[in-house]
Simulated assay, not measured.
Amino acid sequence: MENSSRERITLHLDMDSFFSSVEVRERPELRGLPVVVGSDPKGGSGRGVVSTCSYEAREFGIHSGMPISKAYRLCSDATYLKVNMKLYKDASENIMDTIRIFADRFQQVSVDEAYIDIGDSISDYESAILLAEKIKSEVKRLQRLTCSIGVAPNKVIAKIASDFNKPDRLTVVRPEDVQNFLFPLHVSKIPGIGKKTQPILQEMGIEKVGQLASCDVQLLIARFGKFGLVMHQLANGIDTREVKERDVVKSISTEDTFDEDIYDPLEIERSFSELSEKVHVSLIKKHFRFRTVTIKVRFEDFRTYTRAKTLNAATTDKDAIRKTAISLMEEFLGKGRFRLLGVGVTKLEKLDERQTFLSDFL
């Protein structure tokens, strides 16, 4: 029987504890030890957060997004490493090159995740399992890293499956097993249902995916709008999104969380100059020009604001980033101390070959 679009087989690959695993690969002496990647804990007074950590560190209760100071209190003997994004991006490129060749359609969604559509060439799950095992084997052989893969009828189920039994596992959900797999799970396992949505669902008596799936969809729409319908469909294992390559960069940005809150206008200007320089380097490397400059401001009490300004014409001018960012910052000066500042550019346009060549000299 011909394989229809609803019967496609989709794989979701998720690298295991990616940042820390790459660090351990480069430093074999750290294997088997708790490793935390983030910022300097400064003996428990550091102000950053955990980017990721090894599974050994997770045994102490450490997890991504946790304040680095709390992680240090949980395990002061862990090895704490600063984020080395260039190292991780280089590793990611090699990994994606390794797995891309197995796909009929391929979609990288983050530095350590990708969807693989094999529906054109494979229509049975036995063959799909063999292919997934081959991919895992090749990633381990060529990149010396482990990954977990979910095999399922669509993207959302494959993503949930890849995270179901980490690390270094393969989880298969056949069409006839979708409800038995999804319904017992907590609603937080559905992508998009986060800390704001969960309490509202709990108030409605909904904690499990099965409860969400059987809930009156009109009640969900009344409470959540269009997202209510989306949640209901995902809870029932319905996801019609296709796997497709993403080649559009929508924004380039960077930010800095200060060890000590800053107030002095000269320090603020110096910070924006450094942030603008980083954004400009990335902009030129990726061969884009921009029209809109954005800033992000976080006060010491965690109040957070963004502002943006669109220029008359697209440009690659580094000074335009800096000057616009400083101008946007003026309304916040004198209103408190700042914990974080960020700069970004949006409304990007790809440079043509001649512009790309000239931009290398800017």
Rank of each mutant, 00 (worst) to 15 (best):
E2K: 15
E2L: 15
N3T: 10
L11W: 02
S17G: 01
F19P: 02
S20K: 01
R25I: 03
E26K: 06
P28T: 03
G38K: 09
D40L: 09
D40C: 07
G43L: 14
S45A: 13
G48P: 10
V50C: 11
S54V: 10
A57P: 04
F60C: 11
G61T: 03
G65Y: 10
I68H: 04
Y72S: 05
Y72D: 01
L74P: 11
C75A: 12
A78I: 02
T79A: 08
Y80K: 01
L81S: 01
V83T: 14
K86Q: 11
T98S: 15
I101V: 15
Q107W: 09
E113G: 06
I116E: 04
I122K: 04
I129F: 08
E138M: 12
R141G: 00
L145V: 05
T146K: 04
C147P: 06
V151K: 04
I160A: 04
A161D: 06
F164I: 00
N165T: 04
K166R: 12
R169V: 00
V173C: 07
V173M: 07
N180V: 14
S188H: 12
I190R: 05
P191G: 11
I193F: 08
I206S: 02
G210E: 10
Q211N: 10
V217C: 05
Q218L: 14
L220P: 05
R223E: 14
F224G: 06
K226G: 01
K226N: 11
F227T: 12
F227P: 01
L229M: 13
L234M: 15
R241F: 03
E245Q: 13
R246T: 03
K250R: 14
S251E: 06
I252T: 00
T254S: 08
T257E: 07
D259P: 05
D259W: 05
D261E: 12
L266P: 00
E277S: 14
H280R: 01
R289T: 01
R291V: 04
V293W: 05
V293P: 07
D301K: 11
R303G: 06
K309V: 01
T316L: 01
A320N: 06
T324F: 02
L328S: 01
F332Y: 13
F338M: 07
R339D: 01
L341P: 00
V343F: 08
V345D: 05
E353R: 14
Q355D: 10
F357L: 14
L358E: 15
L362M: 09
L362W: 06
